[in-house]
Structure formats: structure tokens, C-alpha cells
Amino acid sequence: MSAEFDSAAKFAEYAHPERLVTTEWLAEHLGQPGLVVVESDEDVLLYETGHIPGAVKVDWHTDLNDPVVRDYLTGEQFAALLGSKGIARDTTVVIYGDKNNWWAAYALWVFTLFGHEDVRLLDGGRDLWISEGRPLTTDVTEVTPVEYPVVERDDSVVRAFKEDVLEHFGNPLIDVRSPEEYTGERTSAPAYPEEGALRAGHIPTAASVPWARAAAADGTFKNRTELDAIYRDEAGLSDGDDVIAYCRIGERSSHTWFVLTHLLGFEHVRNYDGSWTEWGSAVRVPIATGSERGEVPTR
């Protein structure tokens, strides 16, 4: 049981228009059986201040991560989480969030690890919904728990580990962090708490394309022509490329993964979720500093 796709003209230019819905589409389909709306924000309390009527909350930190090991949920944990949110395996899930859908895209990527088939983003996210004057509520969403099957997580297709990155040299890497993080400048003074990486810089050969460049001023995704100009013309990606994207902990790069995979149609894109907090602290991995991409390491 899958909700109809949004036939908005802008989406038709994208490789997989079925991965997006407009705010109009969502407003018309709210409450429809077989559709669950999920809010996923950077700020863990934002949902509680007001959410789209009927939406449930999934928090990236407290819901999607294993509480002990730095990893995502197991199949059993994911089944329990989704079942408790009223999501069945064939439910259409529309995810939206704050900050250009930054964390919404991350949640969508984690859903993809478990092969949830019909999961879409609300183009423009929470901010566009609000700016259009659409309703929010603080009413608690009544959920009837359902059964979600235990599906083993598949890390082989859209997820990259440090070892994969080391073997990937010679293929395109996209660093989606800020230019300051890319070059290795320190933005915080020595006396302040650190973000958890021992070295600064970027993975050699990575192109710098800050993630938010994919978003327009109103938080929607840029159109196909604009995105092609950024990722193909400027960053140099071409059809058939095997691409790995990374950031600091894998959240911003989920957004870029979504753009490359679902909007531009690249078929082999992985997100390195260990990202800089792992790479920048790992022993004897190559690092480049400054604004140049750097050379393919020889050893």
C-alpha cells in the first residue's frame, strides 16, 4: 500500500522524482492510511514545540544510533522503533526536518540501510511548511503500533567504512563540510572543548562541495540544471562514477548522498559515516591540508 507519487513538474527533472513530495502534496495527503509522516531535526526538542499534525518523531541521536557501540540500530531494534511509530514495511514514509532537511536526509539514509522501500523527503522541510503558514500542533500523535519485520541492515551498498575509503583512492570523494574544516583551519581557540578529531584537514583528493549548496534559499532542493552545474561541471563527477561522500559524523553527507543518488541518478554513491571524527583521529591515514585537493597517496 503505497501513496501516489507527487507529479510536480520540478521533480520530473530529477532521476528519482518519487523520492520527493511538495508541501502541497503533503497537505492534501495528511491522514491518509498507509502514509506516516516523520519529523527528524537537529534539535531534539523542536518537534515538541510544534509539529505537522499526525507526524511522529525520530531523533538521529537517541533513536537511530546504538546506545553503546558507534553504529546504527540492529534489525531487531529498527523493527521495534518503526513498529512503535506505526510504520509497516509497506508504509509510505515522508520525512521532514529543520535546516534544509539535513537530519531528515540522514534518517532517510538510515531507513535505506534497512531497505525500507518507500521513503521520501518533504522538499523544503519544516521551514517551508511553516513559512507557508501551514498548521503545526503540539497535540500528542496517537500511534497504533504495528508489526515491522526484522530486516538485517545492509551496509554494503550505501555505507562506506574507513577501509573502503582507503581502497577507494583514485575514485571521487566529496567533502561536504565547511571550507574552514576542509582546509584544516582551526575555528575554535585552544582553551575550548574540541569537536573530537585530533587532526584537521581533508581526505586527499576529496573535492570540497559544502552540502548546503544543494539547497535553494527557501530550503528546497535546487533544480536539476543547478545541481548538475555544481556536482558534474564543478566537482567533476560523471556518470558511472563510484563516489564516497563524508563530513564530520555522516549527517551532512547523507544530504549530499540523497542529492547524488536520488536527484542526479548516480548509482554508486556511499556515505562514509565515520567521517572526519574517525579519519581525523585514525593512526597513519593520509591527510591533506589547504584548499588544494591533494594527490592520491602512494602508500
Binding site: 531534539v44 546506545p67 572543548p193
Partner: peptide, 21 residues
């Protein structure tokens, strides 16, 4: 830490450190 995650609690530590400084 359990309710909002250790990473987020760090933000409050940063705030306290700056107040003290």
C-alpha cells in the same frame, strides 16, 4: 546524555566554559 545525547550535552559544557572564562 541519554535524553538528548552526549554530543549535544557538550554544547552546554562549551557554554559553561565560556561563562567561566
Amino acid at each position: 546524555s541519554e535524553a538528548v545525547s552526549p554530543l549535544r550535552v557538550r554544547g552546554m559544557s562549551g557554554m559553561l566554559a565560556r561563562v567561566r572564562r
